[in-house]
């Protein structure tokens, strides 16, 4: 924006390297979004199930980390495995008891059901933990920024990029090289054929759902610092998850990955350069993509 006073912001973004810093922050943001949303993308592609309550698992992960750190004094890194395991276990239980009853229902029923879960979760967390945002005190070695060739690089954001980068590579490996990955891909392609080949799709569904919920929880924990964490989290970020999934498509993980990066960079850059537009840009992009490429932007038309 022309004529915009710089003030405090320019302390963080000196000179021409501002663009690179925004890009860097955007990538970190996008990486977190991917870890948050990839589980949703797989369950949607695999079971054609619209799980609007996906953000609940992310919130659970975030709260697990917050509680462990703030009440029990567990160090940040040590909380992360729990931020994965607790939502994964919760996901597994819910999949077996509730979700699997709804796989054959229409999308409206699924939407109503999962929105109901979101409402319940928001109120429940509010009741137990209060409505105030949860603060996560990062360890000192993850705080602050360093100057790399004139570009201000946040340490925590670097950490996120590294961790999420490993997760992305790991996920890709599981999908491409392992027996489970092959079964999963077969089930995504055509569940009926997969069943005919003797694949226990019900087991694949449950395992995938649990892993996806766990990843969401991990994303919630890692992203708490960037995204903020309070009881309205599942609703506030629902639209971001849905954008990742609808823009990225559900037939592979690469689509959602690119979509996450794009969304992360666009959101960070948009908020910096044209704050007056707000979220208008990303919503509009989503509509345009849905209208012209309903199968997703990064999916080859069948």
């Amino acid at each position: 924006m022309a004529g915009r006073p710089h003030g405090a912001r320019s302390l963080y973004f000196p000179g021409g390297s501002r663009v690179l810093t925004i890009l860097f922050d955007g990538i970190a943001y996008g990486m977190v979004l991917f870890v948050l949303a990839c589980g949703l993308s797989i369950t949607l592609g695999l079971m054609n199930f619209v799980n609007l309550a996906h953000g609940v698992f992310a919130m659970v992960g975030g709260y697990v980390t917050a509680i462990l750190m703030n009440r029990l004094g567990v160090p940040f890194l040590a909380t992360l495995p729990f931020a994965f395991l607790v939502p994964a276990a919760l996901g597994l239980v819910m999949e077996r008891t509730l979700y699997q009853r709804l796989y054959n229902r229409n999308h409206l029923d699924q939407v109503l059901f999962t929105i109901g879960l979101v409402f319940m979760a928001i109120a429940a967390v509010d009741y137990v933990m209060g409505s105030q945002p949860q603060l996560i005190q990062l360890p000192s070695w993850l705080r602050g920024r360093v100057d790399v060739f004139g570009v201000q690089v946040g340490l925590y954001r670097s950490f996120i990029i590294v961790v999420c980068g490993f997760l992305v590579v790991g996920l890709q490996f599981v999908l491409a090289k392992t027996r489970f990955g092959a079964q999963l891909r077969a089930a995504v392609d055509d569940a009926r054929v997969a069943r005919g080949l003797g694949i226990n799709t019900s087991l694949v569904f449950a395992a995938t759902f649990a892993a996806g919920s766990g990843l969401a929880g991990l994303g919630g924990a890692l992203g708490a610092e960037i995204l903020g964490l309070d009881p309205t989290f599942p609703l506030k970020f629902l639209i971001y998850f849905m954008i990742v999934v609808t823009v990225g498509g559900t037939s592979s993980l690469t689509g959602p990955f690119y979509a996450s990066l794009l969304l992360g960079i666009a959101d960070v850059a948009g908020k910096y350069y044209v704050p007056s537009l707000g979220a208008f840009v990303i919503y509009t992009v989503m509509i345009v993509v849905l209208v012209f490429r309903p199968q997703g932007l990064f999916v080859k038309a069948r």
Binding site: L98, L112, F113, G116, L117, F119, D126, Y127
Partner: peptide, 17 residues
């Protein structure tokens, strides 16, 4: 007063189930 969305959510869930 604060937690009424919980019950609305529960109604939705039961209704669908």
């Amino acid at each position: 007063p604060q937690y009424w969305t919980f019950w609305i959510g529960l109604i939705l869930v039961i209704l669908v189930l």
